[in-house]
């Protein structure tokens, strides 16, 4: 059974970068798939990868990570400035970040508009069908 946990941006808004990463990793380590409203800062994404690497052991194999983000190509300059200003003040709440434990989520395939979560169960089922 897959468990998805939605994390609204307000839950991480006032946390430090370390606090945000800790919170998201803790949920993932409980074998739940995180659906985070918005996205982490770019440096936080690399920090998340670093923290993940530090915690890999025989039970925790790492994470699968994907960010779905609305197309940045905005023709309206005013809207672009407004969005950047809001992001600066309130954080980037647009889009969706998906973080799954590697033991549950085998792969996240992403085309710009479509996202597919390939789970470990799917992989096993495919192998069974082939044999």
């Amino acid at each position: 059974m897959l468990t998805l946990q939605f994390v609204p941006y307000t839950e991480i808004e006032y946390l430090s970068s370390v606090g945000r990463i800790r919170k998201l990793l803790n949920i993932t380590k409980e074998n739940r798939i995180v659906l985070l409203q918005g996205r982490l800062r770019k440096e936080e994404e690399t920090e998340l990868i670093k923290a993940t690497m530090e915690e890999i052991d025989k039970d925790f194999k790492g994470i699968e990570l994907s960010v779905i983000y609305p197309d940045k190509k905005e023709s309206d300059l005013f809207r672009k400035i407004k969005r950047n200003f809001v992001n600066m003040l309130l954080g980037d709440r647009q889009g969706l970040t998906i973080i799954g434990p590697a033991s549950v989520v085998r792969e996240i395939k992403k085309d710009p508009d479509k996202i597919q979560l390939l789970t470990e169960d799917d992989t096993k089922a495919r192998k069974r069908r082939k044999s």
């Binding site: 770019k42 440096e43 994404e45 690399t46 990868i49 990570l65 994907s66 960010v67 996240i108 395939k109 992403k110 085309d111 710009p112």
Partner: peptide
Amino acid sequence: KDPYSQVNITIIGNLEA
């Protein structure tokens, strides 16, 4: 391979930043 993997996007995004 699929170029849209988050690792690629994260590396390039960090270099851009």
